[in-house]
């Protein structure tokens, strides 16, 4: 398996070729076939793993039994990085989707490598920081979705009470300001404006002056009820 690309992996940034070679030499190497598991959710995290070749899919089993794909790990990418810092369990399972070679540094080895090559520890932290940043963005997306659902539900309630069929959709036939909508949904005027503008661009609603027309009722229901798109 060619190792040239591995030396440019984020984990090895700023390290000399000799250091990288020493770090790679300290790893255990294991080959996996397609559909093999590198780790199982709930197992103790015993090592920092790097995919040298191939591809591993990290999945998480939700409480309802649904399997969610968290990310794909390709050559040079690592997982289990937290093993270097904390005794914990795998929050994910790693399933090989393309025959893979995986490098593993057990905790003691990684800790002593970090002591010898402080840059390695810095790189690990940079990688973990990136993952935290990603998670923060995902949480932000979820919050946005929640606000969108609240606004969609408010419009549905209003349409049910004061909706009027038009040639193009359903007009909510009452004076309704964006501030009213913000108050109904416990959010800000700014957020309501941003969401309505997005929906207008998507052709879902047509906000007018103190009037809102729903142009694609089903799209709004899909947002409000978190339904899969038909």
């Amino acid at each position: 398996m060619p190792e040239a690309p591995l030396s440019s992996a984020p984990l090895f940034e700023g390290l000399s070729a000799a250091d990288v070679a020493a770090i790679l030499a300290a790893a255990h190497r294991r080959r996996y076939g397609r559909a093999d598991f590198v780790c199982h959710q709930g197992d103790p995290v015993d090592a920092v793993y790097m995919v040298a070749g191939g591809r591993v899919r990290l999945t998480q089993l939700e409480v309802d039994g649904q399997e969610v794909v968290i990310r794909f790990i390709g050559p040079g990418d690592i997982f289990g990085a937290v093993a270097a810092f904390k005794v914990t369990q795998f929050p994910v399972s790693g399933e090989v989707v393309e025959a893979s070679e995986v490098l593993a540094w057990d905790r003691a080895t990684m800790v002593s490598l970090i002591e010898r090559h402080p840059r390695l520890g810095q790189n690990l932290m940079a990688i973990l920081s990136g993952r935290i940043q990603e998670m923060r963005e995902r949480i932000g997306d979820l919050q946005t979705q929640r606000v969108e659902r609240r606004i969609a539900r408010a419009l549905l309630r209003l349409a049910q009470q004061a909706g009027q069929r038009t040639a193009t959709g359903i007009l909510i036939n009452l004076p309704l300001s964006r501030q009213d909508l913000a108050e109904m949904t416990g959010t800000t005027l700014y957020t309501v404006s941003r969401v309505l503008s997005q929906w207008e661009a998507d052709g879902i609603v047509k906000p007018g002056r103190e009037r809102v027309e729903i142009l694609r009722p089903h799209a709004l229901v899909t947002i409000a009820e978190d339904l899969p798109s038909p």
Partner: peptide, 21 residues
């Protein structure tokens, strides 16, 4: 698998629209 039953906008949609969606 239609979400029409109990939908707050069911009073506004026709069968034609629902099947199209």
């Amino acid at each position: 698998r239609m979400a029409c039953v109990g939908c707050s906008l069911a009073a506004f949609g026709t069968l034609e629209e629902a099947t199209r969606v």
